[in-house]
């Protein structure tokens, strides 16, 4: 009963924040509500028992996406607002008339899925002793479905290349207030520690490369915003190396497996744990570098 009530409150809060994020009066309010939405969503993941997701969502969904949106708002400047009015009743009725039947259709086709059992969890747990790690989610990410993770790193790299092609995203940050600087100086070592802990923990409990990478990236972004770091230039070569490191190592392991071992992305027996650990470390550094470049990356302005 109490759990049901909690679910109800959480879901109500989630949907209200989503509505506010869409139809907030000013864009600033919208973005603020969207960040809050991300935090509540992290709570929902924790409630549903997906702790891996809660960690990732709090760092990525709420933190980095919020920073990206605010940066976009700063670049866009004050756009003319007031393009819609919810008060228009006819429009609302029309939308409800379309969306409610669609909702009914979706629910009636999805509801039977909620009752059906899937054979996958048992298979995943049965193969766990041979996977090299003890946490099933990490095993799926880096062993059973390593293809997904490999391609995801490629997607991240492509997004970074695309953003870089779009020219200088110069970030004009205001002078940071002293407290932000002081806090960040103390927070940074702690973030590195927690990131390392999450990475190491990932083999046996919730955590892993994505969460650690996102946390480190969030740390870099907040240090940059506090002007404690110099501008991150695309042209800085160690940074480029870091960005490529994860994908390159992953590809090397996959290719070596295909050439010398049993096949593409299948680890030789007994070698799974060290290989997964190496890939995870490289992927963490890569993800951290790519995400922080995506958010606060800059390019030297061509001299006029």
């Amino acid at each position: 009963m109490a759990e049901g009530l909690f679910d109800l409150v959480l879901a109500g809060l989630l949907l209200m924040l989503a509505g506010g994020a869409l139809y907030g009066r000013s864009l600033y309010t919208s973005i603020l509500l969207f960040v809050t939405f991300g935090l509540v969503l992290a709570l929902v993941w924790a409630r549903l028992g997906a702790v891996d997701l809660a960690l990732a969502e709090a760092a990525i969904g709420a933190g980095l996406t919020g920073a990206l949106l605010f940066a976009a708002l700063a670049r866009q400047g004050r756009a003319p607002e007031g393009e819609f009015d919810l008060a228009c009743r006819r429009r609302g009725l029309a939308a409800a008339a379309v969306l409610l039947p669609v909702l009914w259709l979706m629910l009636s086709s999805l509801a039977p899925l909620a009752e059906r059992d899937s054979p996958l969890p048992e298979l995943a747990l049965a193969a766990l002793p041979h996977s090299g790690v003890e946490h099933p989610v990490t095993a799926v990410l880096l062993n059973y479905r390593a293809w997904d993770t490999l391609l995801e790193l490629a997607v991240l790299l492509l997004a970074l290349l695309g953003a870089r092609q779009l020219g200088s995203g110069r970030l004009d940050t205001a002078r940071p207030w002293p407290q932000l600087r002081a806090w960040n100086a103390h927070l940074a070592p702690l973030l590195v520690l927690v990131g390392g802990f999450l990475l190491w923990r990932g083999s046996s409990a919730p955590g892993g490369a994505f969460q650690a990478g996102a946390l480190l990236a969030a740390g870099v972004v907040s240090l940059r915003l506090a002007h404690l770091l110099p501008p991150l230039r695309w042209s800085f070569w160690p940074l480029r190396l870091l960005v490529l490191l994860g994908l390159a190592l992953f590809l090397a392991v996959a290719a070596a497996g295909a050439w010398l071992g049993q096949g593409w992305l299948s680890y030789p027996a007994g070698w799974a744990k060290p290989l997964i650990l190496a890939i995870e470390v490289a992927a963490t550094l890569s993800i951290a570098a790519s995400l922080s470049l995506l958010v606060v990356g800059e390019r030297r302005e061509p001299a006029p």
């Binding site: 549903l48 909620a114 995943a124 799926v140």
Partner: peptide, 29 residues
């Protein structure tokens, strides 16, 4: 769908973790 049985389905959770990073990349672009 992942929490239909206890403990949850790790495959779906892992897919969503992957999806989060892809979503933030697409958003940035």
């Amino acid at each position: 769908l992942a929490i239909r049985e206890r403990p949850g389905d790790p495959v779906l959770v892992a897919l969503v973790v992957t999806g989060l990073v892809v979503a933030v990349s697409a958003t940035a672009l």
